[in-house]
Design a protein around this nucleic acid. Sequence first.
DNA 1: AAAAGCCCCTGGATGC
DNA 2: TGCATCCAGGGGCTTT
Length: 271
Amino acid sequence: MPELPEVEVTRLSFASRIAGAKVLSVDLGKPLRWPLGCAPARLVGRTVRSVRRRGKYLLIDLDRGLLLVHLGMSGSLSFATDLPAPGKHDHFEMVTTQGALRLNDPRRFGAVVYAEAQDVGTASTLLGRLGVEPLTDDFDVDSFHAGLKRRKAAIKQVLLAGDVVVGVGNIYASEALFLAGIRPTVIAARLSRPRVARLRDAIRDILGRALVSGGSTLRNFSSASGENGHFQFETKVYARQGEPCRVCSKPIKLLRQGQRSTFYCAVCQKA
DNA sequence: AAAAGCCCCTGGATGC
DNA sequence: TGCATCCAGGGGCTTT
């Protein structure tokens, strides 16, 4: 579920509401991907400053230290003053003076990790190897082209790896490659500069439009205020194998790359 | 350094 | 209805 648009939609849905709140209590459910990294009681009394995003991570800045939140495959956050009693898949809850922030994550691939501020951004942290933010001006054609030049893997898998550009997951990788007319199996280093430029524009276009649409709700994603996304109704190739391409009417194809599904049109996307 | 595989976990859909 | 199998939006870690 959560690729860059979903994470950003989540951030926008509670960042302003939680800013300035004081932490009253923190409770954990079953173990997530990584341990919190501190005793929950240590967070009590701290103040939430802001909520930022880096790639698919949310960074909740406290007056001292910060929380890194990752939604994994099945995570979603809720922030409200009137949440129902916790369910079996609620594994993190932080009650504040302005509402309770809760992580629901059935598969538990997500995580909430506490870090001291000075630990963030270095190569030793979770954020150290992340690529450029695709919706910023730093995502320019020259550096994108240079990054891809070093990679001999298929372009789809390079996009998913997140060390060249962040935030593009399985849905939006297929969609962006379709929009750019590029076959997902093309070796990244072989893409010409004009095609790299098209791909850059396609990634920004897809992510931007998904963001405006509130993200994609495939199973149970919703923002922290409970809004569902609706970009899943706009996908051109994702999960449409066998159905006619919306441009040329030939059947959409499905293949496996790195044990993940890739969807493409063999006519519209040239090698 | 980069690429390929493996694995964490639960639930829903499908097939017998 | 029950059971087995496969699949799912991510990504760190280990092995080539």
